[in-house]
Design a protein around this nucleic acid. Sequence first.
DNA 1: CAGAGCTCCTGAATGC
DNA 2: TGCATTCAGGAGCTCT
Length: 272
Amino acid sequence: MPELPEVETVCRGIAPHLLNHRIHQVVIRETRLRWKVSSKKLHQHLTGQPIISIQRRAKYILIQVPNGFLVIHLGMSGTLRILPQATPIAKHDHFDCVMTNGKVLRFNDPRRFGSLLWGETLEDITPLQKLGPEPLGTAFNGRYLFQQAQRHRCAIKNFIMNNHIVVGVGNIYASESLFAAKIHPLTPAHQLTLPMAKRLCLAIQKVLTAAIAQGGTTLKDFCQSDGNPGYFSLDLKVYDRKNEPCLTCKSLIQTVRIGQRMSYFCPFCQIC
DNA sequence: CAGAGCTCCTGAATGC
DNA sequence: TGCATTCAGGAGCTCT
């Protein structure tokens, strides 16, 4: 599933094919995504417009045209690819942005948890309001995390996955970051000490930065119509490794369900 | 306000 | 082989 590093990689991958090129046509084949797609608005505001910037906020991809933003979220199963215009339509190909340079930006999403939104300004995009700081920005640091944690009694795993606290930490990287910081996922947030918060902050940044770097080097091909687009194999220490030996101490990795999500941790390395 | 639970959906994995 | 069931999960929404 696309997490922040994947989304960042997608942005970097598609940008060269779209930036400063004009949208010739918009094709919408399915409007029933996370929120109903506003076909009228997308056609009206995107057709004929040049793409002037591509940015990422949290896991949202912001595609800017002169009069506003197309905001794309990949949900759990969404992909964005750059394809030749003649590429046949596959199952779950919900949206095309046909460019005047002959390329197509194609959105595919089997589970339809993704979304396509339009806003004249970013402030108009409801899901972008009330988002916490970017994990790789300067506003996110150990002291900030510590101060926020004091106001919360939920499990630290849920705490760092809370988009009001910090964005872009999904289920995989929450487990990986807590392992790197040697913190048990069930630790109540308010029990976090300042040193622990600093450790956790650095762990989150380190894990995400490493994954983005890996994405840049191992990304197969965004422009391929066959095979897996975009996503890269992750260097995971605990996630999806239940009953496999911890790479540090050889203890068997355990799981615990926190909220509705599966968490993976080492019972020896992550003591508190 | 904080937090728990619900919800959307399909494909892969599992069970019989 | 094939059908039915279970599960995974991003994140906004509702309810307590």
